[in-house]
Design a protein around this nucleic acid. Sequence first.
DNA 1: ATTTGTGGATGATGATCATCATCCTTTTTC
DNA 2: GAAAAAGGATGATGATCATCATCCACAAAT
Lengths: 203, 203
Amino acid sequence: MGYSQASKAQTHQRVVQAAAAQFRQNGIDGISLADLMKELGLTHGGFYKHFGSRDELVAEAIDYALEDSEQTMRELLFKGGKPNLARYLKTYLSETHRDSRATGCSFTALAGDVARKGEALQTAMAEQIERNLELVGEALDQVRPDQRRNQALLLLSTLYGALMMARTVGDSALSREILRSVRDVLLAKVNAVPDARTRSRAD
Amino acid sequence: MGYSQASKAQTHQRVVQAAAAQFRQNGIDGISLADLMKELGLTHGGFYKHFGSRDELVAEAIDYALEDSEQTMRELLFKGGKPNLARYLKTYLSETHRDSRATGCSFTALAGDVARKGEALQTAMAEQIERNLELVGEALDQVRPDQRRNQALLLLSTLYGALMMARTVGDSALSREILRSVRDVLLAKVNAVPDARTRSRAD
DNA sequence: ATTTGTGGATGATGATCATCATCCTTTTTC
DNA sequence: GAAAAAGGATGATGATCATCATCCACAAAT
């Protein structure tokens, strides 16, 4: 029955992944279906064999992007035994991450678009933020349990805001200052709790 | 010579103001020139008597939006003598502000779009952020002078991130929690320095 | 009052897009 | 191997836009 068995599912997934990257890089309306398919060596016609509409792809791609970012977050926070909040902070507020829009934090890349689009996307975002809060909360194991959610909320707000600022001012001295300054303050706070003498070296 | 003297400048300004609101509400690409002019009771044809291109309007409108937000910030921080950081925080993290996209904080409304658009807009944003840092720094008069810029950077990051989150999850319990939680933590910190006993009453 | 310059209106034009109908081609099943 | 089912290609359609040429109507200058 036409083409190889697994190939349809594979193509579908390739479209979703390419869209997840493009939407983060250029915005949800920033790429046409034709260009997206072309990127995969396909033409625009086949698109509707995989998705009922553009919106359907948008929903799938954003789910994929959110899961992708969650996976990265989880690895940075927990890989190798004990929670490693410092590693997450350093990576999140790095220039590399600032410049990796297509593969980096999906919240910062998509928040502006999602806030204006349908309620469905906002619900997906809300659920993801809940999961992120839980993950960060778990990593805040030196914080009083009843303060973990508040602190996680505060930390994520700061990280998201700092990254958005650093991206919005382009690659400038100010951009680097934002990343460095916020990162150092947060690292100092993290290190202060378990062992005040383990300070972060610059960079 | 055609229509009243001041009327052209007035129309020009009305277009800029309407665009500043629409771009914040619906995104820079979220409204067509025809719809924008219609909003003012005009037709699309006259547009090019006022602007050389759409991009020219975008630049002007964003400058206007940024100045508008700076003015609001300045008033909240400094009106009535002494710096009033608490008033600014409360207003910024209110549900009213969350729901006032078209007239509220221009950074959060435009950051996503600007990060993807030309360098010119990013430079305008960078300059505005510098001014905002200065204003907040001035208001941090209980902080050691050499720490004011770092603290201002941290505070703005947190505010921007929290508002973006609150907007991205729609009008939900989570949205209200984000605003309340971040606001209370920040207010507690602000109040802790000058007078530890002046705690904020909820809301 | 007539002339003239200009703001605004009307109506193209060409580009970009999402969507869909139709055709081609390959792979699986019998 | 022949038939058929479905993925993918081609091409069309209708909508939306930015931009521009042309026209109209009014206000200022004479």
